[in-house]
Design a protein around this nucleic acid. Structure first.
Lengths: 200, 200
DNA sequence: GCCTAAATGGAACTGGAGACCCGTTATGAC
DNA sequence: GTCATAACGGGTCTCCAGTTCCATTTAGGC
């Protein structure tokens, strides 16, 4: 006998979720965050409108779920042998992601959702924590080899690479070219070498 | 005789604009970007709904105007005598602005609007260009005095101070405390001293 | 003070997002 | 295979953001 309160993640339910998340991506790229409504997503996913409203309810909640989905697909980090090389690879990856029309629109929407909704914000924090933790070993190695001062906070260094790229993406509007990625990586290394990220 | 196409910025029109912008601020702080509708703004401003729709039309356009208004109120920069002191003052100002419940909500909304609407994005770029230009002299002085390498791009240094704070504000969700502001200023100075921001 | 047109405001209208009802499908335990 | 019920979906309704229309007010040139 099935207990009350049981969930059914199998078969159809999973198929519906995948179709809806995919449709939400498409709709976001085309219409952006503010032009998104759940009825349209349901149409694109060829799924009952009621289903979308029942399972997600709001645009922000849907994007929070999409974000959880994105966090599960890990992007492997580079191993170039040098700290600057690794951070350049990281900066290049972030830059290409944000500059890509599809992924860029997606990230914009997801960040907007996080700014509007606490659940989405929590999902976004988890997403970045995961990504940053994936790249932290590059910095840890550099600390172990004496290339960076002992006590340097690896997470802070990785964030320092992304920060100027996100600043361009969201605030200043300056171009997100390879030069920008290079600048971000070089500045992070320079500051880290000078001990700016040593934990107190 | 008044030519066709003449504008009337005087008296009532200016009063209406001020009331609407003020009401928009209040509504944003209370309900956030996605919970904002022009009808509500009109009610708060005690202004005809038609007027708001005719003059601004969309939330993004209204926020673009609000941004233009914000850009006009200049915030004077500090003169502490040292580069690190000046940049610390700048970082502290940015931090306090973003961490303040009212101003923070305002900036979030305006950045979201810029991500949704090209006019708002242009207004935001103008806003930051103005702010950055106001603080650039701090860096120029340091270059002139030989504290930073010749050819250092002053605007890039100022942006480097803001970037990690905005990253915390919008993406990572890490706390926006004084330690974060200090870190941002110190890292920018360290990278600048190392020549990371020397123009090629 | 007078006059014209720019600008505002009230009121009625409308389209579609989102809520609700209830019948249908298919999952998973036995 | 059978059954209970979780999950989906079509149809309908409601409400209100956004639009339109027209009367009223007022800025600003003479």
């Amino acid at each position: 006998m099935t207990e009350p309160g049981t969930v059914r993640p199998g078969g159809r339910t999973a198929r519906v979720r995948a179709a809806v998340l995919r449709a939400a991506e498409d709709a976001l790229v085309e219409k952006g965050f503010d032009g998104l409504d759940l009825a349209d997503v349901a149409r694109r996913a060829e799924v009952g409108k009621t289903t979308v409203y029942r399972r997600w309810g709001t645009v922000a909640a849907l994007l929070a779920d999409l974000l959880t989905d994105m966090a599960e697909q890990s992007s492997p980090r580079a191993e170039t042998g040098s700290l600057l090389g690794d951070l350049r690879a990281n900066a290049g990856l972030v830059r290409r992601t944000l500059a890509d029309p599809r992924q860029g629109a997606l990230f914009k929407a997801v960040i907007i959702a996080a700014a509007c909704d606490e659940r989405a914000a929590a999902a976004l924090r988890r997403f970045y924590r995961t990504r940053i933790a994936e790249w932290a070993p590059c910095v840890e190695r550099a600390v172990a080899q004496g290339e960076l001062p002992a006590g340097t906070d690896p997470h802070e260094v990785i964030k320092a690479v992304s920060a100027p790229l996100y600043y361009r993406f969201l605030a200043s509007g300056d171009p997100l070219d390879e030069a920008a990625a290079d600048l971000a990586a070089r500045a992070a290394v320079a500051a880290a070498r000078a001990g700016a990220y040593v934990r107190p």
